[in-house]
Design a protein around this nucleic acid. Structure first.
Lengths: 250, 250
DNA sequence: TGCATCCGGAGCGTATACAATACAGAGCTT
DNA sequence: AAGCTCTGTATTGTATACGCTCCGGATGCA
């Protein structure tokens, strides 16, 4: 892996203003803020899988017209965070069992490989930032702020991938991490949310020590343990067997 | 590249409809066809990097209003086939040197790993289909139809990734392949277009033999040879240093 | 009473209208 | 003569209007 540029955010002059403060004169970049707002709400499980996202309602909430909302929803749909059903509108995606397996298989493949690259390219500033993120996540967990913790965890993995210096792979990991959050919402067991509290700290220290091989192994165990913690079985089909369900009542 | 007249038809069964044959009954699926049409035009280099894509012009060509065109352009932008510059509209992306390196690095990582998976999952039907695609590509090359050959090559790699059974990774490879076509357009040497004529045939036979390890090695050499065939050097910067350039004249 | 049909509302899909802005060319100033 | 500004035009950004489809309830008929 070569290259020495750093991952510039799309347009660096990006400023996020409060969603409701400037309803009239919000510039084109306001859409980016709305995107992040909805995206965060989904990742934090404030919007649960299956929740409908009506265009009118969102338009009113964010103080713009449906046009902009549709743009945001289309982007979210391409990232598979929301599902767009014709004539029915948008709703938060409900990943299938196959989706879940695909996502974790992909993460295993890509994130593990990236650890070895990251170990050789990580800088002091990166290490400090990652330690910070891990700490925030630990504290969120301790305060039982599960919503924040899940988002921070996804951000951590995404940030980790950025260190590799490969933008294409970093974006891909970012999307996979976001989708993982949805998978947790559907198949996760309450109380035990994905990442162990100290896993990320350990990962950072391994990278700080430059030990790519062990970081890779650790990431592998980390991801496998997350996947193993899921309750992946086929959901009740769309036409549940009511006789079976209410058998006890009869 | 001057006229806007060059994107209408595509070689395969893509129907180019008369300008306004069905203004009312467009149907939501029409956008998918338009997306494929523009996407194919870009991948086949009928629209070259830097070419501007004016919304009005596209709207007129495809017989719909700008609304639908904007939707398609936004999707293409998210896939990084077109670049959307604020207030300047859309143009075919011109991948940077860094982009090129990232894309091929990602392909190397993912496609190679997928070969071992594909070798265990490939079916007779898959083998037959891949042989067919490789044959079409060979013939296109022999007939000097470079445009078709490039698209067929990208389709081949994408189809190959689908065999792994992992949708997330398959989509990712598909996007990387499309972007690779753009990279070829910018940094490729005329005459030697990426894939060697028999590489894909060899790949199929290795997979048909179930030899995942050698398929992986072959894919690695294949991708590296493509990347090596590129002329990757920094293009003149956007604000060329005129003093430097004309130093000899002074 | 049960089912089919009709009707009304709600919400999305598409087109069009209007406003804002960047580029280009011409004219003026120095 | 060269540079700067000012204005005109072309093109995108955003909002709004209208039509169409789907869902739910009410009504009529068997």
């Amino acid at each position: 892996m070569s290259g020495s540029r750093q991952m510039a955010e799309s347009t660096s002059g990006d400023q996020a203003q409060a969603p409701d403060s400037g309803p009239k004169k919000s510039g084109g970049k306001g859409l980016e803020a709305i995107y992040r707002s909805i995206s965060a709400a989904i990742i934090e499980h404030r919007l649960k899988p299956g929740a409908r996202l009506r265009e009118d309602a969102l338009a009113e909430v964010f103080g713009i017209s449906r046009t902009g909302i549709r743009k945001v929803l289309q982007r979210l749909a391409l990232e598979q965070l929301v599902t767009l059903t014709p004539r029915r509108g948008a709703s938060v995606s409900r990943p299938s069992v196959d989706d879940a397996r695909d996502v974790f298989e992909a993460r295993l493949m890509v994130e593990c490989a990236l650890m070895e690259v990251a170990a050789t390219r990580i800088t002091e500033a990166d290490i400090q930032e990652l330690r910070d993120m891990a700490k925030q996540e630990r504290e969120a967990l301790r305060n039982l702020e599960q919503r924040s913790a899940i988002k921070l965890s996804a951000d951590f993995h995404a940030r980790l991938a950025e260190i590799s210096g490969n933008r294409a792979l970093a974006e891909f990991v970012g999307q996979l991490s976001s989708r993982s959050s949805l998978i947790l919402a559907v198949y996760g067991n309450a109380g035990h949310l994905g990442c162990e509290s100290h896993d990320h700290d350990n990962l950072v220290e391994l990278l700080a020590a430059g030990d790519g091989a062990r970081a890779k192994d650790f990431m592998e165990r980390h991801l496998k343990s997350i996947e193993a913690s899921l309750s992946i079985f086929d959901e009740p089909e769309e036409t549940p067997d009511l006789r079976d369900i209410f058998a006890v009542d009869v």
